[in-house]
Design a protein around this nucleic acid. Structure first.
Length: 978
RNA sequence: GCGGAUGUGGCGUAAUGGCAGCCGCGCCAGACUUAGGAUCUGGUGUCGUAAGACGUGGGGGUUCGAGUCCCUUCAUCCGCACCA
């Protein structure tokens, strides 16, 4: 009987679903283990082989932990609010809910084929009102909270209001916008609106005016992590900076805790480093520079980490958005400065980033007074100063800061040197930015080392009341409102212009029906089109929705109690399941999701709903599986094209008649070899990978697929280019070769490999093993289906070991069961226990790729030993079952078991089976030491003693130490392991 | 520029500081065959007929012993990027 994987896999998947084999119970005496995958956004393209990589790894761990006696929570769900469904809705008018449901159904079908042990009863979907009811509820908690610096946690806003009523804000030490001091009496006299505005400065979810990343093409704002290289991460549209009133999250309140928390969790260093960098803590000083003016009594506050260079200041620069710019600019400079400010505002983020090194700025005509020297110092505006960081103003020290140096050079400003470098340095060419050297020309700082000087300078600045030590973070508050339809409605309504949270009883605030999914003609968000809001006409509703990361910032908690209608999850469930023990997902979420989920977790802890502050104890980033694209070469026959400028390229594309030949890659390869560095005189086109097996193009198939090329000639034989013209030689093979390129797996590159196809051709168990076998989990690697036969062959061999008479197996071709109950041999036991040991270690270390090798070695050995002993073959199935659950279930039941193998304990490892046979002989030496001699060669005890004695004489380092073992290598040396 | 990671056969990769290349792909040879995308056996780092020598990006160091630890340098990939 052959290995009928299709039949086996279907049968077992149905049985697991029917019997709910993997349902996790919320009450159990067993220890818990929570394995979580980052849930997917269900896109229309379906899954490709890269998606399940992490799920397979986590499934192996989940199944292993079940065998090991843990109560395992291993859920799956969908992050189902998102842009593609909405864009599809805009184009077709179809409700995004419908597309989303279809996509989810498709995902589920694909996932089911791979045989995951998910507890599907706990599935969550972020776009389900039963789920987002609680996302909205958490938002309201955030709205009704502020961050108290005294208790160093979030507190209820009522506490703050009570304090205001009693004492005003004089004693309040909370994270907030700059607020003027007021008394209790003032507070009571404030209008409702004034009170609301004031509280807004404290709330953790707040409505505030700030510069945001505005994406005009999408008609929405984006968070910092959603912008890459000045364009939107999704869609790649340009992004501008725009001052807008927006719902935001005061994540900055948690900056310090988010930073400190990293030390307590087992995440990779690179990921922690990205978060550290993103949070960007820097210690410095704020310093006030008084403006030199009779009528204006103001000062400019700057932030610096280099207070030691205070005497090197030669000008002060304000960000173009700085409030004081318009106030201080002298009349004769006003026109130029205004023009500059307008120009820099209209520049897109991308433009601004593109010419980072290009200096621009304008003199305001105003001056400040140097707090120590009393000299007057010019004030400039320059867009190299960021409005959003620090105070939006810097004291420029051109001799010791690269950016100030560039600015000073451009405007021919003085560059007074205040530090003597400890190495040779040319101040004409460069600034000396190192925090090393001795201070000069700096009054009371002279002679000090930089680090000491920083301390001393802060002391003096604080003494003169010019400023104080301050900690700044790069992290900005996260913009929370999105001008979009397909997201959670923000549960806020407005009464007389004052925002109020919806009462809890009104939740969920369900996404209303709209006629179109576009913004309105007046530029209002799509929700402005809603007609069926409950209180329409009575109150005004907030029209923006939540961003994609809202629903994913707490979903791990919902899995713990997914059907609860009274709470986001019951206290009992949370106390039992706690936080995630192992979290798997891509590293692209480093500064997005993984920061937000930590933030919300800390907040919920502050509120007393949970008792841990980190969502995941351990996190592993699985690598990306890339696609291998096949390219074919579309050459230019008549036009020279050796110079690879884009202009020429475009020019050629305008002349398709010149572009009517394809040439085999062989010819191009020759060209490349002979003309290193020259751009290829051809255009590479992606070919559907099914049309290029073994780097050879199926020309007929290609023409069928792309009929527009049916009149093109395909030149297989070799040739060469001369002056851009291809000359054939008629040499070489008559095969039309393509070229392989590793790139992202994507529909548009025609290089997608679907897990469904692999399951059909080889089975889910093969897919699972092969994905693991491909290489270390955390590494990115290209998918190459070629190697899969090795893994598939292993499963067939395993099958034969149990089922074919030739292999001495369990059952004959007829299906007759005939397993030997004899005691296993020493060699068989050694093979088994070696494998048990290695597999356990591999899983604990997450090196799943070596596991597969170890299984192969095991089966090869057992086949060679013609092993048919139940005592060996049964435990082997159990340790293999996390990797290949279907085939092991089938064999397990053929061995006569009724119960699912998934619930069987993991076999115990017994060291003695390895040691006994391991050439390890303890011998005594000088009556004191004991050596373990590991011998790959046969030696007598006398010979060993002689060798050890020689070793003792040669290796002086042995003195006073007890060797653990001595390894004798034939013809070589004695290795003594101490 | 800053931060992180990675460099080992034709390829994917493996080696608690202890015989480098396990396992798989590919390739070569053979067996069996209704000639096949089945199965099995043997071989396969480089040079050399061989004994043997040389081999983990380059250079240096620690060590009895280094792919592994330290320093340095080069290359590739991934993040971040005017954060004062």
């Amino acid at each position: 009987m052959d290995y009928q994987f299709k039949d086996i896999e279907k049968r077992w998947q149905e049985r697991w679903a029917k019997e709910k084999t993997f349902a996790a119970k919320n009450d159990s005496s067993k220890p818990k283990y929570y394995v979580l995958d980052m849930f997917p956004y269900p896109s229309g393209a379906g899954l490709h082989v890269g998606h399940p990589l992490g799920y397979i790894a986590s499934d192996i761990v989940a199944r292993y932990k079940r065998h090991k006696g843990f109560n395992v929570l291993h859920p799956m769900g969908y992050d189902s609010f998102g842009l593609p469904a909405e864009q599809y809705a805009i184009q077709t008018g179809q409700h995004p809910k419908i597309t989303t449901e279809q996509n989810i159904a498709r995902y589920r079908e694909q996932l089911d084929k791979i045989g995951f042990s998910f507890d599907w009863d706990r599935e969550v979907q972020t776009s389900d009102p039963k789920y987002y009811k609680w996302t909205q509820w958490i938002f309201i908690q955030l709205f009704n909270s502020y961050y108290d610096k005294k208790t160093n946690k979030a507190e209820k806003i009522e506490i703050l209001i009570a304090e205001f009523e009693k004492n005003g804000n004089a004693n309040v030490n909370a994270v907030c916008e700059e607020t003027k001091t007021f008394s209790a009496a003032d507070w009571k006299a404030f209008s409702e609106k004034e009170k609301s505005d004031l509280l807004m400065n404290y709330r953790i979810a707040y409505l505030g005016e700030a510069y945001v990343n505005w994406c005009p093409a999408m008609g929405t704002v984006l968070a910092n992590d959603e912008v890459k290289d000045g364009v939107s991460e999704r869609g790649g549209y340009p992004v501008e900076r725009k001052l807008m009133k927006q719902w935001s999250m005061r994540i900055t309140a948690y900056a310090q805790r988010l930073l400190e928390g990293l030390d307590k969790i087992d995440w990779t260093d690179s990921l922690k480093d990205s978060q550290r960098y993103w949070i960007g803590r820097s210690e410095g000083t704020s310093i006030k520079f008084e403006i030199k003016s009779e009528k204006l009594k103001e000062s400019i506050e700057v932030f610096t980490t280099r207070s030691d260079t205070i005497f090197g200041v030669s000008f002060v620069t304000l960000a173009p958005e700085h409030d004081l710019v318009s106030k201080i600019t002298a009349a004769e400079h006003k026109a130029k400065v205004d023009a500059y400010v307008v120009a820099s505002k209209s520049r897109s983020e991308r433009e601004r980033q593109a010419d980072v090194k290009k200096v621009s700025g304008e003199f305001t005509g105003a001056y400040v007074i140097h707090p120590f020297s009393g000299k007057q110092i010019p004030i400039y505006v320059g867009d190299y100063v960021l409005a959003g960081y620090g105070t939006g103003a810097v004291m420029a020290v051109p001799a010791h800061d690269e950016r100030d140096f560039r600015f000073a050079t451009h405007f021919s400003l003085a560059k007074p040197q205040v530090i003597t470098p400890n190495r040779e340095h040319d101040f004409e060419k460069d600034s000396w930015d190192e925090k090393e050297g001795k201070l000069i020309n700096s009054d009371f700082l002279n002679g000090l080392e930089v680090k000491a000087a920083i301390k001393k300078a802060i002391e003096e600045i604080e003494k003169k009341n010019l400023g104080k030590g301050k900690i700044n973070f790069r992290l900005r508050d996260a913009v929370f409102g999105r001008q979009r339809y397909w997201g959670e409605p923000i549960p806020i309504f407005y009464k007389d212009g004052i925002p109020h949270a919806m009462p809890e009883s009104e939740l969920p605030l369900v996404l209303p029906v709209v006629d179109k999914y576009l913004p309105t003609e007046d530029g209002e968000p799509p929700l402005a089109r809603a007609k069926d809001w409950k209180y329409k006409g009575q109150y005004e509703y907030e029209q923006t929705t939540m961003p994609g990361w809202a629903g994913s910032s707490w979903y791990f908690l919902r899995y713990e109690d997914p059907h609860n209608e009274k709470e986001f999850a019951s206290k009992k469930a949370i106390d039992y399941w706690q936080n995630v023990d192992l979290y798997l997902g891509g590293s692209e979420h480093a500064t997005g999701h993984l920061l937000y989920v930590r933030f919300w977790t800390m907040f919920l802890k502050d509120m007393g709903y949970i008792n841990f502050d980190e969502p995941a104890k351990k996190l592993i980033n699985q690598g990306m599986i890339q696609g291998v694209s096949e390219m074919c070469c579309n050459t230019y026959m008549t036009h020279p094209r050796f110079v690879g400028t884009n202009e020429e390229w475009d020019e050629e594309l305008k002349h398709p008649e010149r572009n009517n030949h394809f040439v085999s890659y062989d010819a191009f390869e020759k060209f490349e070899k002979e003309n290193p560095g020259l751009p290829p005189p051809l255009l590479e086109r992606n070919v559907d990978i099914s049309l290029a097996k073994n780097a050879e193009l199926n020309i007929e198939g290609f023409i069928k697929w792309r009929p527009e090329f049916k009149d093109h000639e395909f030149i297989c034989q070799g040739g060469f280019w001369k002056s851009g013209v291809f000359h054939r030689t008629g040499e070489g093979s008559d095969k039309f070769k393509t070229k392989s390129v590793v790139e992202k797996m994507s529909k548009s590159k025609y290089n997608v490999v679907s897990p469904d196809d692999i399951c059909n051709d080889f089975g889910a168990d093969t897919l699972r093993l092969y994905e693991m076998f491909l290489g270390p989990l955390e590494q990115s690697k290209p998918w190459n289906t070629n190697g899969i036969t090795g893994v598939h062959g292993f499963l067939k061999k395993l099958w034969r070991l149990y089922l074919s008479p030739a292999g001495g197996g369990v059952a004959h071709a007829t299906g007759e069961v005939a397993v030997s109950e004899d005691a296993p041999t020493k060699a068989e036991l050694k093979t088994l226990h070696k494998t048990i040991k290695k597999i356990s270690e591999d899983i604990e270390n997450f090196s799943f790729n070596t596991s597969v090798s170890n299984f192969m070695i095991c089966v090869n050995e057992l086949t060679e030993q013609k092993c048919n002993k139940r005592a060996i073959l049964e435990p082997l199935l159990v340790i293999l079952s996390p990797y290949a659950p279907h085939i092991t279930e089938e064999l397990w039941s053929l061995l006569g078991h009724k119960e699912s193998i998934a619930l069987v304990p993991f076999p115990m490892f017994d060291e003695k089976h390895l040691v006994e046979d391991n050439f390890m002989y303890p011998i005594s030496f000088n009556g004191k030491m004991r050596f373990n001699i590991e011998m790959p060669v046969t030696l007598t005890v006398a010979e060993i003693e002689k060798i050890v004695m020689e070793a003792e004489q040669t290796h002086k380092y042995l003195e006073g130490k007890t060797p653990k073992k001595v390894i004798i290598v034939p013809k070589k040396i004695v290795n003594i392991v101490v």
